[in-house]
Amino acid sequence: MQRVNMIMAESPGLITICLLGYLLSAECTVFLDHENANKILNRPKRYNSGKLEEFVQGNLERECMEEKCSFEEAREVFENTERTTEFWKQYVDGDQCESNPCLNGGSCKDDINSYECWCPFGFEGKNCELDVTCNIKNGRCEQFCKNSADNKVVCSCTEGYRLAENQKSCEPAVPFPCGRVSVSQTSKLTRAETVFPDVDYVNSTEAETILDNITQSTQSFNDFTRVVGGEDAKPGQFPWQVVLNGKVDAFCGGSIVNEKWIVTAAHCVETGVKITVVAGEHNIEETEHTEQKRNVIRIIPHHNYNAAINKYNHDIALLELDEPLVLNSYVTPICIADKEYTNIFLKFGSGYVSGWGRVFHKGRSALVLQYLRVPLVDRATCLRSTKFTIYNNMFCAGFHEGGRDSCQGDSGGPHVTEVEGTSFLTGIISWGEECAMKGKYGIYTKVSRYVNWIKEKTKLT
């Protein structure tokens, strides 16, 4: 034993070699072989497995989906700052455009905790909710729209109204504003409101030439003092309507412009014939205590009207009353817009006519005020429907199939267009061939041609 100890002390290297040989010859039971080890760690190889990531292109799944990435790591994937920024906006807080917040056709661009709407022409605001041009839906104005110097929408209202708090709607500024039905039992019968379409306001006024200088022999019209197929109006439903009495009662109609003036057809009036105007009328054979009678003290036909040349060209006249009318729910003026808007309103496509005229061709006159909704007829169809001249200051309205029309005794009465609950004068009943005849239409004086003249002559002093 002493000898062994001496050998170990003198030859430590020998001992180490012996131990190493023993270990190498022993069977290893701690580690699995290569094949079995792979069965336990069965993990798919990654895209760049075996390579240094710093030297390969980034992978979106590896960089940002398996674990949260930084902007720089995302930049490695896209290799483009702009594309990385677009991805980053949604990656950080989701897609803010998912709810489609942009209105009126706006395009949404996502941002971090926010979004941006790219608005089409005519709109602005956070969600493109603000109209900035009158060309689109009248700028959301209830009545009139004008573009300011910086191309912003400025709404306005006709006389007797003021802008509401929203700067879009119009509200009454006087007790009985024009064009409004205020009798409670008839307010439910107000005709369907007309909503502004998209309009090209630059070209809204037709490029028409008034044929002022045409000389033409007097034409022989049949029954051209021209509501057939209409309905009984309720008291106060058309408070701007008046009836004219002269040699015979209810020979023509008219509309209240203001307390002192009536507008009617020029062919209705004769110099030297006494005319009485009755406002607030409903049943011409009954006294309903809503009527107001006034005498006409002055007749002003349009300066281009000449019955000797043509009885229905420039067929418009103004009547001055001896005493002002007292405005109330049964006696209310009709609204008159400017030339541009009167023309736009007419193009809405349908209007209402009213009167006490004959209820059928050569038949009896109506006792109760009649009204009828009539569609506008395109000019080409209008011209083809008659052998008589249709001037540019006239328009056609009615039904091709016949059966409904204005008729004798309705002449001078109103053709009105309702705009968001307020009625505007767009025409004056003038003439036609018979009444409600198939293929024939009622012919009306186009008020847009005469609004400046009306307003100039009827100013209240």
Rank of each mutant, 00 (worst) to 15 (best):
S204V: 14
N245W: 06
C141D: 00
W431C: 11
T426A: 00
V154Q: 14
K234V: 13
C18L: 14
T445M: 12
M6F: 12
C117P: 00
C134Y: 03
P44N: 10
F399E: 14
G21C: 07
A192C: 05
L19M: 07
A307N: 07
G160Y: 02
T84D: 09
E171R: 07
N147W: 09
T290D: 04
V368Y: 07
R191I: 14
E73F: 05
S114W: 04
K51V: 12
E340A: 13
N135W: 06
I454K: 01
Y22I: 14
E98C: 05
Y352W: 05
T16W: 13
S354V: 12
N38S: 15
F55V: 15
M394S: 06
K39L: 09
P44T: 15
R46C: 05
G13K: 15
F345N: 01
R43M: 12
R83E: 05
T342F: 00
N304M: 14
H314P: 02
A337Y: 00
W453V: 00
P375H: 14
F78K: 15
N166F: 02
I40C: 05
S49T: 14
V277S: 02
N203L: 09
N213F: 06
W453A: 00
V4W: 09
L189W: 10
N42E: 08
I428M: 05
G357E: 12
S11G: 14
I256F: 00
F196W: 13
C119Q: 00
I15L: 07
V92C: 04
A164P: 02
E323T: 13
V4Y: 06
C145A: 03
L376A: 04
L32W: 12
V92S: 14
T85R: 06
S448E: 07
L20E: 02
A317W: 00
S70R: 10
V199P: 15
K89I: 06
L369C: 03
E171A: 10
H289Q: 07
N222E: 10
Y115G: 00
K362Q: 08
F224A: 15
E129R: 02
E54W: 06
E82S: 09
N104C: 00
L20V: 11
R3A: 13
P101K: 03
T332K: 07
C69G: 04
F71M: 13
H267T: 05
I316Y: 00
D410R: 13
A9S: 12
C141I: 01
T85N: 08
I15F: 07
F251Q: 08
G179Q: 01
V263L: 11
Y352F: 14
N304L: 15
E193M: 14
I309N: 13
T389V: 10
F399W: 13
E193H: 13
D150G: 13
T287V: 11
Q185Y: 14
C382K: 02
Y444A: 03
F399S: 12
C335I: 00
A37T: 14
I300S: 03
I284P: 06
C155E: 01
L346I: 06
A37G: 15
P172W: 03
R294D: 01
K440C: 10
L383F: 15
T84A: 12
E76H: 15
I299T: 14
T84H: 07
V56C: 05
E320C: 02
G179F: 01
Q219K: 12
P414C: 10
T342K: 00
T209S: 13
P375Q: 11
E285T: 10
A233S: 09
G13C: 13
T16C: 09
